[in-house]
């Protein structure tokens, strides 16, 4: 059984725990005993943070809307479509016609890259996330 250090994905307390995994499957949670935030404790959500990771409803492939329906597609096709659409929109309507919503749920590095994508690549400051919500 492997233990990997992590941070609880729910509220802003930032409780630290180890993810217990076996055969590439998360099987449990062990709170960090010494982390000053939670000192070996968690709330009901933290203790039960293991289950949704392997939900059968997880998205496992890119989807593209075709004839009104979202259908499975390859990464290659989906990435190209998105990049082209964003570039076309930028060309046709200017940077202010694009918007990027970053996320309070993803890592700092990913938030940084999202804002860099918006600003450096598409030259727009239309970037925000749900801090207000």
């Amino acid at each position: 059984m492997k233990r990997t250090r992590s941070v609880c994905p729910f509220c802003g307390c930032g409780c630290s725990f180890y993810i217990l995994s076996e055969n590439d499957r998360v099987v449990g949670i062990e709170p960090s005993p010494e982390n000053p935030v939670n000192k070996g404790m968690l709330c009901v959500k933290g203790w039960n943070a293991h289950e949704f990771i392997h939900s059968p409803e997880r998205l496992v492939t890119p989807l593209i809307r075709k004839q009104g329906e979202l259908v499975a597609a390859s990464w290659d096709e989906a990435l190209k479509l998105v990049a082209n659409k964003l570039m076309d929109t930028h060309k046709k309507y200017g940077p202010r016609a694009l918007g990027f919503l970053s996320s309070a749920k993803v890592s700092n590095e990913e938030n940084y890259l999202m804002m860099k994508l918006a600003r450096a690549v598409f030259k727009t400051n239309n970037v925000d996330h749900c801090a207000r919500l």
């Binding site: 099987v27 449990g28 062990e30 005993p33 070996g40 289950e51």
Partner: peptide
């Protein structure tokens, strides 16, 4: 540690 060894015989979640 926080978890006792029961977690070896009886994991928090198991198929």
């Amino acid at each position: 540690p926080p978890l006792s060894p029961k977690s070896v015989f009886f994991p928090q979640s198991e198929i």
